[in-house]
């Protein structure tokens, strides 16, 4: 398979299949969770809207409480660098915006290539640091399984191949671009099956706890 045919495959049938699998997988996983029994809490709420007030956790939990910062903030910041860099590179790059416009009809102005490359570079460097942390921290090593490392790989691959295509490193442009898009296809396929699903579950898990704690008037 040469560069041109890989590119055609990656942005043609592979991309369509990836989106289909991702959509079906997300629906399957959510249905598998929410079809399970849910108990009704009959306790008298602390106050009438206290459960709703607890939902502020959905935003507030994005930054650690003062009591925990000393022990967790530095790696939270690295995590944020990775996520923000990734989001800027994904949502700010003109060809990506074109793709999104074709799919959903939404559009916004793109950022200069240099900024995209910088964001992707920061994101990739942060990911490498996070992998190093996972491998060196006894707590993280103990918790980690195939999902953690495979997810890291499929997240890292589009960044690196994107940067290589942008700077013309490695293979010819068409092949690099084909590899870049194909790696993104794999990312989309994997999303519902591993920890990447947190992008969707985050709101539900925080919201569930927020509503329960809020009902009690407990700090969230």
């Amino acid at each position: 398979m040469n560069g041109a045919s890989l590119l055609d495959f990656a942005r043609g049938p592979a991309f369509e299949a990836a989106l289909a699998i991702m959509t079906f997988g997300i629906a399957w996983r959510l249905a598998g969770i929410f079809a399970l029994a849910r108990s009704v809490d009959r306790s008298e709420p602390r106050s009438r809207f206290s459960g709703l007030r607890g939902l502020r956790i959905i935003l507030s939990r994005s930054w650690p409480r003062a009591e925990f910062r000393e022990r967790v903030l530095e790696w939270d910041i690295v995590g944020y660098l990775f996520h923000i860099g990734y989001a800027v590179a994904f949502l700010g790059y003109a060809p990506h915006i074109l793709l999104i416009r074709n799919l959903f009809g939404l559009r916004w102005p793109g950022l200069p290539g240099g900024i995209i490359a910088f964001a992707a570079g920061v994101s990739a460097a942060s990911l490498l640091a996070l992998l190093g942390h996972r491998l060196s921290s006894p707590v993280l090593r103990q918790l980690s399984n195939f999902d953690d490392y495979f997810t890291w790989l499929v997240t890292f691959a589009p960044l690196v191949t994107g940067l290589m295509a942008y700077y013309g490193i490695g293979a010819d442009f068409q092949l690099m671009l084909g590899l870049h898009i194909f790696s993104a296809d794999i990312l989309f396929v994997w999303l519902p099956f591993g920890k990447l699903m947190h992008v969707i579950l985050l709101v539900f898990s925080r919201g569930t706890t927020g509503a329960a704690y809020g009902r009690r008037g407990a700090p969230v």
Partner: peptide, 30 residues
């Protein structure tokens, strides 16, 4: 049930819970 399932599905293995636990903080044992 659904709530426990949601929690078990949502964990991203970040290990931050260890940093809030007095047992881990005092022993360093993962």
């Amino acid at each position: 049930g659904a709530t426990a399932a949601l929690y078990l599905e949502a964990c991203v293995h970040c290990g931050q819970c260890a940093e809030a636990c007095h047992y881990y903080v005092q022993t360093g044992d993962p």
